[in-house]
């Protein structure tokens, strides 16, 4: 009766495993609509193409221009700033809210239900909403000019425009990260807290010595999704600031869009997109490796 033994090595023993054919449709589809575009992107970055006619090979010209362009270094810097700001603001908020919401009770359920709403709205809807509310002449700053100071034009300076972007992105994404932490916090065994209470540990101490370490995996998940998401912020920038004032909030994704679809330098735009892919992959790889997330998933996968 070895067939009934369920040691990991012979798991699913009797049945022949399903063949590769089951994976073929998804793999082929993904290859055609995601992998091939990536290859085409890399190829386009070595061509010049204006959208009319066919791309012409120009070697490394786009790359040389991109590397030499001081504006592109500023764009990379802005990308980093916007990403870091988003993570630094939304992670603590969602962590606190998630842990708080994990506790039961009617109030918490209602508050969570309302705070969840932004997650349902498209980033376009959210950006349009905030653009309207923050309009210097016809929105809230016009009404509460004391609060916003001076002209109330929050889109006029680099730092205030970045604050707006950070705030709106926290408004939009904190609910999702809250959910991650809420799920994680619910899974923490209550015994740990009971033991801590017997030891006389206060709430704050419990948070740092039990909750936080136990939420390690949730934190890593939230960070990876947050970083890759913020790195490629686009809709919000297009609608809220149009990369302005004067390019001061133009990140790599927005630069890719304007270079390609507004200035018709698709070769250069592709080079910028390639930088974006490389950066996103490297950062994910680094985060995954340095946090041991891959070991965590491979345990889960059993691969």
């Amino acid at each position: 009766m070895t067939r009934l033994s369920s040691s990991p090595a012979t798991r699913g023993g009797a049945m022949r495993p399903p063949g590769l054919g089951w994976a073929a449709p998804a793999t082929l589809f993904f290859a055609v609509f995601a992998i091939i575009p990536l290859i085409v992107m890399a190829w386009l970055s070595f061509t010049t193409w204006s959208g009319i006619g066919s791309p012409a090979f120009v070697g490394s010209e786009n790359w040389e221009r991109l590397v030499a362009d001081p504006a592109f270094q500023q764009i990379l810097w802005i990308t980093v700033v916007i990403t870091l700001a988003a993570i630094l603001v939304q992670t603590p908020i969602s962590l606190l809210l998630g842990v708080w919401a994990a506790g039961g009770g009617r109030t918490r359920a209602i508050v969570s239900a309302i705070c969840f709403v932004p997650l349902l709205l498209s980033s376009a809807a959210i950006a349009v909403l905030w653009r309207g509310l923050l309009d210097p002449n016809f929105g809230i700053p016009g009404e509460l000019s004391d609060l916003f100071g001076g002209s109330g034009n929050v889109f006029a300076s680099q730092w205030s425009a970045i604050i707006v972007l950070t705030f709106v992105s926290a408004w939009q994404y904190a609910p999702f990260h809250t959910l991650i932490f809420q799920g994680g916090a619910r899974a923490i065994p209550a015994v740990l807290y009971q033991a801590a209470e017997i030891d006389g540990a206060g709430k704050v101490r419990q948070f740092f010595s039990i909750t936080l370490p136990q939420l390690r995996n949730s934190l890593i998940t939230s960070l990876i999704l947050g970083v890759v998401g913020s790195l490629t912020t686009f809709d919000t920038i297009l609608i809220l600031t149009r990369g302005g004032p004067g390019g001061a909030t133009t990140n790599t994704a927005y630069f890719m869009y304007t270079t390609g679809f507004l200035s018709f330098d698709f070769g250069m735009g592709s080079a910028a997109a390639t930088v974006l892919v490389i950066a996103a992959s490297l950062i994910s790889f680094f985060l995954v490796r340095s946090t041991g997330y891959d070991r965590m998933t491979s345990e889960k996968e059993g691969v």
Partner: peptide, 23 residues
């Protein structure tokens, strides 16, 4: 031009409204 002209849109009706309202 004031200090918020870069947020005002003619296409969106902003500059026209400012003039109509005497602002």
């Amino acid at each position: 031009f004031g200090d918020s002209f870069d947020s005002v849109s003619f296409v969106g009706g902003g500059s026209g409204q400012l003039m109509r309202e005497g602002r």
